[in-house]
Design a protein around this nucleic acid. Sequence first.
DNA 1: AACGCGGGGGC
DNA 2: GCCCCAGCGTT
Length: 357
Amino acid sequence: MPAIKSTPPKPKAFCAKIPDRKNAAAFARALAGWYAQSARKLPWRQIPSLYSTVVSEFMLQQTQISTVLPYFEKWLRRFPDFEALAKAPEAALLKHWEGLGYYSRARNLHALAKEICASGIPENSRQWLRMKGVGPYTAAAISSIAQGEKIALVDGNVVRVLTRLSADKTPYPSASAAIAPLQPFAQSLMDAAQNPGAHNQAMMELGALICTRNRPPECLLCPVRIFCAVAGRADAQDFPFLAAKKTERVEKDRLWIKHGKKLLLRRAHAQAKRLAQLWELPLKEDLPQAICQKEPLMVKKRGISNQQITERIFGARLAPKNFPKGEQWIWADEKKLHALTLSGPHRRWVNLLKDFR
DNA sequence: AACGCGGGGGC
DNA sequence: GCCCCAGCGTT
């Protein structure tokens, strides 16, 4: 009877310059060496404890380190541990959170302290995830840093590092949309690491100090440049590729109707979501009786909000009996036209066409 | 997938 | 002004 083959290892999400686990281990070693040498001395790293880790991770949600620093110091003096926090009145917490923003974090942290004092400490990321205010990032951060769980976190820094390592040109709809797809890659690197908490922090530290967003990355100083698909490339800063906000394509036909020297305009009503009260060329659908030319005088594209609008402007005629009525309509001569408020594109069109007929 | 949540930093 | 920041909860 043949020996039962062991189940094949789970497919690993690696990349061109980190093709297997052996390379991942070399990557993790290089990163860890750099981190031991170069990590900033942040207060929650100086006083490593579960409590300081939890407090710092709550404060750091969507908040920059420099903003958090003074709050963290004051908080630990006033609320030195979970017991002190659980006993304190909510008003005291909020007062110490004042100015930090996202105040539900303070209330969630309060509830978390009470829960821990009543029922004990969550043991792993899955249990942390059940607590209000703790999502995938915070659960992985706390359990890896304070409890040694081998679970990778993915934040904005890590998205940047991973997409550059793998030259990932996926047009993610947003940075947050990239987190789930990149998690397996992050985890495959974590699996090869020795110290889970240090590895996670090192990935973020690399993004903060070397693999930067607002300036060209310092590839020459990067401890893992030999593992990076874009190291030294001029386009390294272009990663991650975040798709432009999804734009809806819209087509509009407008009419250029002259009566003597006057031009017919309409305006959006006061409650319109866009361009309220601004004068514009009438839409073809507003004036079904108009006699419209076959070919447009002009075709222009422009963007408004999330729409990409292609507008065609047709010369047209309108019998006096069909002239529209109401305050939404106006026949504007050149002088009046100058005084009316038009959107930028409409002003430019009118200027371009003003001598037409 | 898209918002709201808050305040601040970088460009 | 706009995007983003050691994100999460809701819709």
